[in-house]
Nucleic acid binder design. Sequence first.
DNA 1: TGATCAATATACCATTCTGTTATGAAGCTG
DNA 2: CAGCTTCATAACAGAATGGTATATTGATCA
Lengths: 316, 316
Amino acid sequence: MKLNERHLMLLAAVVDAGGVSEGAALLGLTQPAVSRALVMLEARVGEPLFQRGRRPLRPTPLGAQLAAHGRTILAASREASSTVSGFVRGTKGTVRVGGVPFFIDAMISTMIAGFLTLEPDVNVRLSYGNTPEMAKALEGDQIDLAIVPIGLTDATPGFDFTEILPGRNVVACRAGHPLARQRRLQAADLKGFPWVAPLPGSPLLTDLHSILVGMGLPEFDIRFSGGSLMAVLNYMAGSDALTILPFSVVFSQRLENRIASLPFDIPQPQRALGILRRRNAPKNPVAERFAAHIVQSFDELKHLIKRHENAVVWGR
Amino acid sequence: MKLNERHLMLLAAVVDAGGVSEGAALLGLTQPAVSRALVMLEARVGEPLFQRGRRPLRPTPLGAQLAAHGRTILAASREASSTVSGFVRGTKGTVRVGGVPFFIDAMISTMIAGFLTLEPDVNVRLSYGNTPEMAKALEGDQIDLAIVPIGLTDATPGFDFTEILPGRNVVACRAGHPLARQRRLQAADLKGFPWVAPLPGSPLLTDLHSILVGMGLPEFDIRFSGGSLMAVLNYMAGSDALTILPFSVVFSQRLENRIASLPFDIPQPQRALGILRRRNAPKNPVAERFAAHIVQSFDELKHLIKRHENAVVWGR
DNA sequence: TGATCAATATACCATTCTGTTATGAAGCTG
DNA sequence: CAGCTTCATAACAGAATGGTATATTGATCA
């Protein structure tokens, strides 16, 4: 007993409106069109759906039940329409975001919160990974965009890269660390402190190695590695260990007052954090709006950093 | 942006089946029909719904979302079909039952439980009232059937009345009542005990009055009235009060061993409990099945009563 | 890199459905 | 009972749906 879905919708409208004419008006149709559809549905069902010959049109029990199903179809149809218009406006849908763990945890997560507050009908699905995995995920359409660090020189074909923050690493330690008081540090001063290494695969790890070797500290002491940002921060706060972190990550923790950056110059990577997207990915306006929000948030962050640094300089 | 619901369903089938041909087969259509519907839907939406030119057909984010709505429509449509076939078989739907309080509470409620156990997809909506209200409710299509007592002589036009139990009243008291031990009672024996009167409007009330007056007990003492069956039974169990109850109601309480009927003959009403239905009510097979179940349950009850009475006679 | 295979898209046609206007039939109201 | 309102039906135009036949396009493999 296959029923015509349009007929069920018309039935729902008629039952809800309390009359054939009213239901037709509700749907922007004429009364005969609806009337005939009801007759056809009734014929298909083989049972009366209305109490015929009663002026306040009243559905039979079966009619009322079928109307309920018609109502859900009608609702789903409206939802679908709203999904489409929400999609083209970028105010409805899902963004699948990938990113490197430290930046996601330190800053992107907060920015996601800001975005979702602005866009209540949007979902964000987050996943973690380093740049190569993220590129693969973009390729396979598992994510819409990735927030990753990329070398400034290597432009990958088929991908768009929007730079949002130049790479800038600092040596970080806990607030109140013995080295934190000094104004200028030599490589030799860092000797004797253990080091924390980030997740394997992270460019920070190679940065750390090259910097330490370049500093003439070939036999450095790595006691903790592989932790997430929160794990690293917690460990740092409870020890005198040193590590390499992006300055922005250290900056994002300034209100917690748990870690500080040391006044020690290290070679900077030719790398920038940015948004990586596949060039001919299926259009997803929400993803574009999300990317725009991330770019804007980082602009604000950069201004904040600038103001903060000026304040620090003046404060001295 | 009004979308075609059929197209949404086809989309859902194609996405779920993982291909146009498979989706078409799923729906019993040919591949070109489905293919064209998708093209039309895409044109209407104005955005791609599939990653074109990828062999394992993959929907775009928007396509996937619309497919979800299509799935809802498809499910509602199937539900509607099942509602129809369930309706004609009488295995799905709602019975709106009305009835007089004492019988509903004493027996019908248990029978409803039995019916709903047999018919897991059926709903029962119960309402209470005396015969005139129930007739009005039938008239106004608020209920499908009423279980009420009706005088054997008055056949109301426009209604069908199916007798299920002849009227038979007894004088009831608590188990262990001083009068319960005696073999034969005179009217005078009942003097001095207070009486419980049922809900106003109940025929039992007029029965009670006429019986008491006929017994020569004009100044009887009514200390409690208007309670539901449970209220009356609880009160009776805690007092030496007497009341008039249908024998079947007393019988239904036999396992509780809280009340008993007195061996005292009273005039019986020319009345029977039965199922009242409007003659030209909209067809509702569930209601018919329910009525049949009630009739059958009462048949079983009558046999039970007969066996029970024989046992009592033999026991003496 | 072609040749081949499998799946999708398109063309074309018959049929059904949908929607409109015009009009008849039936119930409610005063 | 007349008049009003609402629903049902008739007739027709246009759109849609669904089918067969066929072209096109990726994917696969030698």
